[in-house]
Design a protein around this nucleic acid. Structure first.
Length: 423
RNA sequence: GGACGAGUGGCGGAGUGGUUGAACGCGGCGGUCUUGAAAACCGCAGGCGCCGAAAGGCGCUCGUAGGUUCGAAUCCUACCUCGUCCGCCA
């Protein structure tokens, strides 16, 4: 959520920055200002009346306490109170309107975000490793996985429909080993606290991190609509400290969490749907930071480095791209994507998205810290996949397949996986 | 799921209709004293919003949202959360 004070102070600057996201990104700005002005006018009026009421009520109390009559003071008070109630109602209405508008406006892209209209304009920041060379034609993970009996899409469709997978035997074990190893890696080497959060969250949490109210159709909800399946661990983990005022010295808070992620993927039917690339349910280890505003941009580099370290340890070729203003997510101010090379599919797959939200989410969830000057300020929040499974699984099995259709297990995860070869 | 009870400041805990944003204790911060510390003593301290250049003023806030009343932490309703008991259950 944008700071209304900033919008008030520099509406044109805010509009310009929002418009770098594309047409329509600044919609609602004018209405917010309108509502804000109306709101403040009403508040001024009603608070004056309330001050009067308080003074008179106090005096009535004093007189009654002394056993004196106060009838002439009480005359007209009913009307005053009714008028106050009416103005309060109007104020609440405007406030709610302003809130809704504000919740639907995206974050300001970072000042130095690459400008661009869409994903084609995202610059590649760096590349690590090289595409694996094969002296045979590498299979894609679907063919390979079904041959080895470690992936079963037929059963998954029977059980749950399209967009789901069943991992079997060594496949299930590999999935589990990767989760286990990534969590150990981040908690052991990068200083994260592991959390295992709920997978169902209430609406307020979804609003806090920005999935709601705008992206309701992408979320799975329980029948009454009171709980939502987490689309990412970002939601329960960032909300751990909602409505809190942290001590400055508590920052940063760094959490690593495994959760399954549930996404409806509405409107994406037919897009990269082969195999494991786009699922309604996938596993992910997520990294979340709550950081001091002065350090959040540096923290993003560090956080992204932690996600990259996973791919490096696994020896997977990847590239790092920075999202341009036209492609960056709703709540993010700055964002890197890590795309890993899947030689069987012959394409890069996004396995991590590392974002700095600055104070956008913190404002929504009332997450603050007490600064050195004693003033409370919104924290900055960041998160990044460290990393997302399914696609990591794809890259790994496709990269490490052998000519005879087996899979070599990368050194790094052999201790948790238990053997050097699948098949 | 049902019944009962409870939600007050960082914590504990008073407060059952009127000058209570809230006694008291602990913790926190500043000071006096001390070579330093402790103890003792004195003082300061919630959050949000509106107006204001600032100083400051005002409003709201006692789980949340409504209601009763001239006036609500206090009375009523709903919801949320916690506790206890019952039911069910991995």
């Amino acid at each position: 959520m944008l700071d209304i004070a900033l919008i008030r102070k520099d509406p044109d600057g805010v509009r310009q920055r929002l418009l770098t996201r594309g047409q329509g990104a600044a919609d609602g700005l004018a209405k917010v200002l309108e509502a804000d002005e109306e709101r403040r006018k009403l508040i001024g009026e009603v608070e004056k009346l309330k001050a009067e009421r308080n003074t008179i009520s106090k005096e009535i109390g004093v007189r009654k306490g002394q056993g004196q009559p106060a009838d002439e003071l009480m005359a007209g008070m009913k009307e005053k109170s009714d008028r106050i109630a009416e103005l309060d109602r109007l104020t609440a209405e405007v406030e709610a309107r302003q809130e809704t508008l504000l919740l639907n406006i995206p974050n300001l892209p970072w000042e130095d975000c690459p400008k661009g209209g869409g994903s084609a304009d995202n610059p590649v920041v760096s590349t690590w490793g090289n595409p694996k060379k094969f002296d045979f034609k590498p299979l894609d993970h679907v063919t390979l996985g079904e041959k080895l009996g470690i992936l079963d899409f037929t059963s998954a469709a029977k059980v749950s429909g399209s967009g789901f997978a069943v991992y079997r035997g060594a496949g299930a074990k590999l999935e589990r080993a990767l989760i286990h190893w990534m969590l150990n890696f981040h908690t052991g080497s990068h200083g994260y606290t592991e959390v295992s959060p709920p997978f169902l969250v209430r609406e307020a949490s979804m609003v806090g991190t920005g999935q709601l109210p705008k992206f309701r159709e992408d979320m799975y909800a329980t029948e009454g609509g009171e709980l939502f399946l987490v689309p990412t661990a970002e939601v329960p983990v960032t909300n751990l400290h909602r409505e809190e005022i942290l001590a400055e010295g508590d920052l940063p808070k760094k959490y690593a969490a495994y959760t399954p992620c549930f996404r409806r993927e509405a409107g994406s039917a037919g897009k990269e749907t082969r195999g494991l690339a786009r699922m309604h349910q996938f596993d992910k280890v997520e990294l979340v930071w709550i950081e001091h505003p002065d350090r959040s941009m540096q923290a993003l580099e560090t956080l992204c480095g932690h996600a990259e370290a996973v791919l490096q340890k696994l020896g997977l070729h990847y590239r790092k791209i920075e999202l341009c203003t036209g492609d960056i997510g709703f709540g993010a101010a700055r964002c890197y994507d890590l795309e890993v090379w899947a030689p069987g599919m012959g394409q890069f797959l996004e396995v991590s998205s590392c974002s700095n939200f600055r104070d956008f989410q913190a404002r929504r969830m009332g997450l603050r810290f007490k600064g050195a000057d004693g003033k409370n300020r919104a924290c900055h929040t960041l998160n990044g996949s460290g990393t997302a499974l399914a696609r990591l699984f794809i890259a790994l099995v496709e990269t490490y397949q052998t000519k005879d259709g087996k899979i070599e297990v990368p050194e790094a995860i052999r201790p948790v996986f238990g053997s050097p070869l699948i098949g």
